[in-house]
Amino acid sequence: MGQGEDIWSDYADDDKTIAYIKNYLPQELKDKYSDDELLYFLDLIDEYYTESGILDAEPDAEGYVDIDLELVADYIVKEARKDEMGEYDPKEILFIVQGEMEYGDSLGQDE
Rank of each mutant, 00 (worst) to 15 (best):
residue 104 G to L: 12
residue 68 D to E: 11
residue 98 Q to A: 08
residue 81 R to V: 10
residue 93 I to R: 05
residue 64 Y to T: 04
residue 80 A to N: 01
residue 100 E to A: 14
residue 59 P to E: 11
residue 65 V to T: 07
residue 61 A to L: 15
residue 111 E to P: 09
residue 78 K to Q: 07
residue 85 M to H: 12
residue 72 V to K: 08
residue 107 L to M: 00
residue 58 E to R: 12
residue 106 S to N: 08
residue 97 V to N: 04
residue 71 L to P: 01
residue 103 Y to P: 11
residue 92 E to R: 03
residue 64 Y to M: 05
residue 101 M to Y: 13
residue 63 G to P: 14
residue 82 K to H: 13
residue 103 Y to H: 14
residue 69 L to S: 10
residue 83 D to F: 08
residue 101 M to C: 10
residue 67 I to S: 10
residue 98 Q to E: 13
residue 105 D to E: 15
residue 104 G to C: 05
residue 109 Q to Y: 07
residue 79 E to Y: 01
residue 60 D to H: 05
residue 85 M to F: 02
residue 73 A to M: 06
residue 101 M to I: 11
residue 91 K to M: 12
residue 74 D to F: 01
residue 107 L to Y: 00
residue 85 M to L: 11
residue 58 E to L: 07
residue 67 I to W: 02
residue 81 R to M: 10
residue 96 I to W: 03
residue 106 S to V: 10
residue 98 Q to D: 13
residue 83 D to R: 08
residue 60 D to P: 11
residue 94 L to T: 12
residue 100 E to R: 05
residue 110 D to I: 15
residue 66 D to A: 11
residue 76 I to W: 09
residue 63 G to W: 07
residue 65 V to K: 03
residue 103 Y to D: 07
residue 79 E to R: 06
residue 81 R to A: 06
residue 75 Y to I: 03
residue 103 Y to I: 15
residue 78 K to I: 06
residue 80 A to H: 09
residue 105 D to Q: 11
residue 83 D to Q: 15
residue 62 E to M: 11
residue 87 E to P: 13
residue 61 A to W: 06
residue 80 A to G: 11
